[in-house]
Design a protein around this nucleic acid. Sequence first.
DNA 1: AGCGATGTTCGCCG
DNA 2: TCGGCGAACATCGC
Length: 259
Amino acid sequence: MPELPEVEIFKKYIDETSLNQKIINVLINDERVLGSDKKFFNELVGMKFKESTRHGKYIFVNLNPNFLVLHFGMSGGLEYFNHDDQEPSYSKVIFQFDNGYSLAYTSRRMFGRLYITKSINSFLKEKKLGPDAYKMSFADFQKSLERRTTNAKTALMNQSIVAGVGNIYSDEILFQSKINPKMKIDVISHDQNLLKLLFEKIKLVLEYGISEQGILENYDNDLLIPHRKIKEQCPVCGTTIERYDIIGRRGFFCPKCQK
DNA sequence: AGCGATGTTCGCCG
DNA sequence: TCGGCGAACATCGC
């Protein structure tokens, strides 16, 4: 499921449901989602989720001294449920708390992973993650684009450049910025005004996504997102939305608005 | 029945 | 060494 807005909602979900309760058991239904040694997960018994932070599409849960890292791939999610209720489908790992509730990490397609790490910074370095797209400063963004020459769409989706933006939101950001997805990022980064515009649209689009709980179906009709399919019309100018393929993904744009 | 999907990683090339 | 790019990975719903 998740790009940055959805992951931010997951973070809030953890904060609202799972903090400060003693873990009495860690059920591992499928070891394939473990990105760190299984023993580290078993060691979590007796500990508590202290707080959480999000960087890009990753959530770090402080367990003092270590951190549980959650990543959701394309089909991961979280579900807090009562022990008496049925286990959510596709539950891969379940954290059972002493209050009678559990937090399930679910994943349908096995692209997500859970890790244990000693330090957030070393984890970010290891995964080569760039600055968080929602929290970064303009200077961070500018620095991140140094020496980059790929097209705008690929740059936005590259987690080493900016962490958190994926296929859907990159389409929307480029649409709002009126930038053609194939435009070279170095051309953009050498144009201060255009770069500033792109930066602002990244923030606005992500902020909107978070405010709408990342529920794409609810998104305003004057955005591109509801029209990301063939035979749709641009909500701004009425031109037929075009589809294109780039690094193995499918993007949409308005050929008139995004020259 | 086959295609496509909100993601990351790896290996090759220049 | 670094950046760009394409393929691979796994599974299921439409």
